[in-house]
Each structure stands twice: as structure tokens, then as C-alpha cells.
């Protein structure tokens, strides 16, 4: 990939937090079905959406993601019966924080993708990528002094010391 930084060739980086049983398996199905999709999403596998701490999302943006996808089992289909309900409630609150943090809502995609919805996973990936691509690179939380991260593939600078509280 070349590292020219003009807006038209901007390829966003998206981190996806997905549950192991529904969405991860749905993404597997998309693979076995050979459904072609944008290559901008990196999946982090978790047992359940109930395991997702909203701070994971905050962290992902802090570390240079331009968008985040959160996806799990459909309501009533949770492998663990109710983890996704807890996640849903948690994110309902979290959404109110998003604006406060200076994140346009379009950068975060919440969806339900079941193990049988490979097709839907592709749509989620492509839609989220397109949306974030249109929004342009995420330039960091307002008020924090993060160095701007270059587009994907460009040589990464060393994280600036003190640039956003390493855990």
C-alpha cells in the first residue's frame, strides 16, 4: 500500500469487537462463503458482547482507529442467555458519552450478526467502512495532544510519550 496522504486514497482502520459465538462465527461463514468485502476491519474476538468494556472502544480510537464495530448475537440469541442484553444497556448509556468525547456517532457501529448471517456481516463491514471513509481520518479526541496517526500502511511514528495514558 502506498503512503500518500491525500484524502481520496484514505483507507480507514476499523477495529471490530465481536462475540465468539454469533458474529465471529458469522464472519467465519462469510469467509467460507467467499463473500468479498473491504479489508479495513480487524476483528478482536471476545467470548460475548457482555465482556466488552466501553473503554475498549475509547482505547481503540485513542490508538488510531478511525472507526469501531461492536457486534454480537441478536437479542434472545445470546450463547450466554443474557450477556448481549447487558451489553445493549451498557452501550445505550455509552452512546450519551460518545458526543461528549468528541466522537461523531457515525464512527461507531453497533449491530447484531448471527452465526448464519455471513451476508449481513459483509454489509456491516462495507457500510461501516464506507461511512468512516467519508468521515475521514479520526484526528484524536479534542483537548488531548495525540500525534495524528498516518493512514494505514504508512510507517508509524513512535507513540508520543504521554500521548493518552497507556494502560
Amino acid at each position: 500500500m502506498n503512503a500518500t496522504l491525500d484524502k481520496t486514497s484514505f483507507e480507514p482502520r476499523l477495529t471490530a469487537f465481536v462475540c465468539n459465538w454469533c458474529t465471529y462465527t458469522g464472519a467465519d461463514l462469510a469467509g467460507t462463503s467467499r463473500l468479498q468485502m473491504d479489508a479495513n476491519v480487524r476483528i478482536v474476538r471476545l467470548p460475548c458482547t457482555g465482556r466488552i468494556d466501553p473503554l475498549f472502544i475509547v482505547k481503540a480510537f485513542e490508538r488510531g482507529a478511525d472507526g469501531v464495530i461492536v457486534s454480537g448475537c441478536h437479542p434472545a440469541d445470546c450463547h450466554y442467555t443474557s450477556g448481549n442484553y447487558h451489553a445493549r444497556r451498557r452501550f445505550a448509556f455509552f452512546k450519551e458519552l460518545i458526543e461528549f468525547l468528541g466522537l461523531p456517532e457515525g464512527r461507531i457501529t453497533f449491530s447484531w450478526v448471527s452465526a448464519s448471517e455471513g451476508q449481513k456481516w459483509r454489509e456491516v463491514v462495507n457500510d461501516a467502512t464506507a461511512r468512516v471513509r467519508a468521515l475521514g481520518p479520526f484526528s484524536g479526541y479534542p483537548g488531548t495532544e495525540l500525534p495524528a496517526w498516518p493512514a494505514a500502511g504508512a510507517p508509524a511514528p513512535n507513540p508520543a510519550p504521554g500521548g493518552g495514558g497507556e494502560r
Binding site: P47, G64, A65, R167
Partner: peptide, 18 residues
């Protein structure tokens, strides 16, 4: 949660930014 500790997950998220 053993196998999915905060430390592990943050390490994964951080690794994506390198």
C-alpha cells in the same frame, strides 16, 4: 475472565495501532 483479561484485550487493541 481467564483467557480474556483486560490486559490481554488492551494489548490486542494497542497492537493494532503499531
Amino acid at each position: 475472565l481467564m483467557g480474556f483479561t483486560d490486559e490481554q484485550i488492551y494489548a490486542e487493541v494497542n497492537a493494532l495501532a503499531l
